[in-house]
Design a protein around this nucleic acid. Structure first.
Length: 279
DNA sequence: ACGCCCGCCTGTAAGC
DNA sequence: TGCTTACAGGCGGGCG
């Protein structure tokens, strides 16, 4: 579920809410939520007593730094939520698997019905051992440095359909099924165009579409689809779904040309596009 | 080496 | 009405 804009929204709010707080105790009610650890106790003991020193995002991962070399790393999978709760006696939502309580009061709850999400603790130096995929992430579309010229070189090193490439975390980190469709529409490109055959102008359009779509989505605090799985730290839904051009708009008129948006199944996943605007 | 499919889970909603 | 089936934002592993 949560892609870069949703994770970034959570990251920014986490910075305001948990920076400097000390972890008093950790309660794990589903072992699977901390499955990278040999046992629950090893997860708890790495957190309890430590103070939170930074919050970062890498792709769809949240990194919550501690006052030693360790980080609490969170991946929300498809249905994970992080919630800040001020009153710790308030009833926990169903599927609350991990609770991190602070000495200053309040707690952070990890809720995840489908259990694809997870939490684990690692230092930077242990990451390669514990979670190698984090070290293999591609560039972050919103972290400066990259220009469309670099992007052009990266695209030409591959011969892959654009949809697969945009959702490949090793190529570019943070884009999933929703935003790849929105980006391709904004760029006016079909999902099955091959990455090393784009014209210079098309590469520029794709790069621009990627940066602008993701930035706009963050401005709207992410997308919450019909089932409202995505909620921010405070349990509020995002707003960007109202700006979607294609995702979830099957058979509705394209906002640009008024042709019907089509829904396809590509690599086993739903894909939405305008066959007139995307070439 | 790469692309594609499956499985991991559970809640929801459509279909019969 | 109620049971069954398909499907969903992600990702890693295995197969061809």
């Amino acid at each position: 579920m949560p892609e870069l804009p949703e994770v970034e929204t959570i990251k920014r709010d986490l910075e305001k809410e948990v920076l400097g707080k000390r972890i008093k105790l950790v309660d794990v009610s589903l072992d699977r939520a901390v499955r990278r650890h040999p046992n629950v106790a090893s997860f708890k003991s790495k957190l309890e007593g430590h103070k939170i020193s930074f919050v970062k995002r890498r792709g769809k991962y949240l990194l919550i730094g501690l006052d030693n070399d360790d980080m609490l790393i969170v991946h929300l999978g498809m249905s994970g939520q992080l919630l800040i709760v001020k009153r710790t006696r308030d009833a926990r939502d169903a599927h609350t698997h991990v609770v991190v309580r602070f000495t200053q009061g309040g707690e952070l709850r990890f809720v995840d019905p489908r259990t694809f999400g997870e939490m684990f603790v690692s230092s930077l130096s242990q990451l390669e051992q514990i979670a190698p995929e984090l070290n293999e992430l591609g560039f972050d579309p919103l972290e400066g440095q990259m220009s469309w010229i670099n992007f052009d070189q990266l695209l030409r090193q591959k011969r892959t359909k654009l949809k697969s490439l945009l959702t490949d975390q090793k190529f570019v980190a943070g884009i999933g099924n929703i935003y790849s469709d929105e980006i391709l529409f904004a760029a006016g490109l079909r999902y099955d165009r091959i990455s090393d055959t784009l014209t210079t102008q098309e590469v520029r359009r794709l790069y621009r579409a990627m940066v602008e779509t993701l930035s706009e989505a963050i401005r709207h605090r992410g997308s919450s689809l019909a089932d409202e799985q995505y909620k921010d730290l405070f349990g509020e839904v995002g707003d960007y779904q109202s700006q979607h051009q294609v995702y979830g708009r099957e058979s509705q008129p394209c906002r640009r040309c008024h042709n019907k948006i089509v829904r396809l199944k590509v690599n086993g996943r739903p894909l939405f596009m305008c066959e007139h605007c995307q070439i």
